[in-house]
């Protein structure tokens, strides 16, 4: 049945008979949502601009040497970031070293081993851990974790592995080690829930194949689940690293805030993020600019970790779609 425009009722052409909101609603909705989307990009750009602007005088004064020198002397206005970069690197990598196997274990348990009914409650509990405000974790770190590590774990580690410089003989309730443990607690929920999602993309037919071939659960995991998930696990760890590198509050609370580069992880240190959080108020202009330079380094590191992780995740999703 064909109707040409001339014979159509006039309301079809003019939209008369529909209210104003009805007529322009969709267009308005489009504009509002577009604005919201643009806003997030503008904010990211604005922050980046401001941080670079703040860092400007420090960048021109210290150049790239800032990254390799370690004196931080507000009195003589000499600034170098090496000790904070070291603190950030050791605390974050240390945390990931503990968090990665733990997260993989949690994810394997929840996707392959746990009784089906208990999976969701346990997963929710693990993710709730991510909801604890970091300042509360830091408080717990000061009151409970630090003293416990100082009195029990650190002497034990030193007794067993004291020949490694990392586990030197000076103990302290604050320092790199408590910071690592706190960061572990903060990253495990993220890394384990992402890893769990990655495991869910493993083709069930491949897992079935391993079991039908006379594989144990462990065989099934090592032949199909883990190798298939490797890029996804790496992405999850990168996102965990991103979280650990950027965490300021809880780390500031437990790390002790002492300058210097020491092999011993039991004594106080400082990270880039905790240095910014601890020192910015009341600092001199060049000192503030140096902290801005730290922020630039932090921002670039975060964007790199996040970007690489996203690329890896996209690769995993594409492969999951193909198979």
């Amino acid at each position: 049945m064909t109707t040409d425009a001339a014979t159509a009722p006039s309301s079809l052409l003019s939209g008369q008979g529909r209210g104003l909101v009805d007529r322009f609603g969709d267009r308005a909705l489009y504009l509002i949502t577009l604005l919201a989307a643009i806003l997030s990009g503008v904010i990211l750009g604005g922050i980046t601009y401001e941080v670079f602007k703040l860092a400007g005088s420090a960048i021109s004064k210290f150049g790239l040497g800032f990254l390799t020198t370690s004196n931080w002397d507000p009195v003589h206005e000499q600034f170098g970031a090496a000790q904070f970069i070291y603190g950030t690197a050791v605390s974050s990598f240390g945390a990931l070293l503990i968090a990665t196997p733990l997260s993989i274990a949690i994810a394997l348990f929840l996707t392959e081993l746990a009784p089906r009914r208990s999976r969701t409650p346990i997963a929710v509990l693990v993710e709730l851990l991510a909801g604890v405000p970091s300042v509360i974790l830091g408080l717990w770190g000061i009151l409970v974790l630090g003293p416990f590590l100082n009195d029990t774990v650190e002497p034990a580690l030193h007794a067993a592995l004291g020949w490694i410089p990392l586990f030197g003989g000076t103990y302290s309730p604050v320092g790199l080690f408590p910071a690592m443990v706190i960061l572990t607690i903060m990253t495990v929920p993220i890394v384990s829930s992402l890893t769990r999602e990655v495991f869910a993309t493993v083709p069930p037919s491949a897992k079935e194949g391993a079991l039908a071939l006379g594989g144990t659960r462990w065989d099934m995991m090592t032949t199909t689940v883990l190798p298939y998930s490797r890029p996804g696990i790496i992405a999850a760890v990168m996102l965990g690293l991103w979280r650990a590198v950027g965490e300021a509050i809880a780390v500031t609370q437990v790390i002790g805030g002492a300058p210097g580069i020491h092999a011993n992880i039991f004594i106080p240190a400082q990270t880039m993020a905790s240095q910014i959080a601890a020192q910015y108020q009341g600092a001199s202009p060049l000192n503030q600019s140096a902290l801005g330079y730290l922020a630039v380094v932090l921002l670039i590191l975060s964007l790199v970790f996040n970007g690489v992780a996203r690329l890896l995740v996209r690769g995993v999703q594409r492969r999951a779609k193909v198979s």
């Binding site: 037919s205 491949a206 079935e208 194949g209 391993a210 079991l211 039908a212 006379g214 594989g215 032949t223």
Partner: peptide, 26 residues
């Protein structure tokens, strides 16, 4: 399952493994 082997409707080689490793897996 080591006594009773199975071949499925849709071929399901282990996706990350070589031809050799697929056969060697069991």
């Amino acid at each position: 399952r080591r006594f009773v082997g199975m071949v499925f409707q849709k071929a399901n080689p282990f996706p990350t493994m070589s031809i050799f490793d697929n056969v060697a897996a069991g």
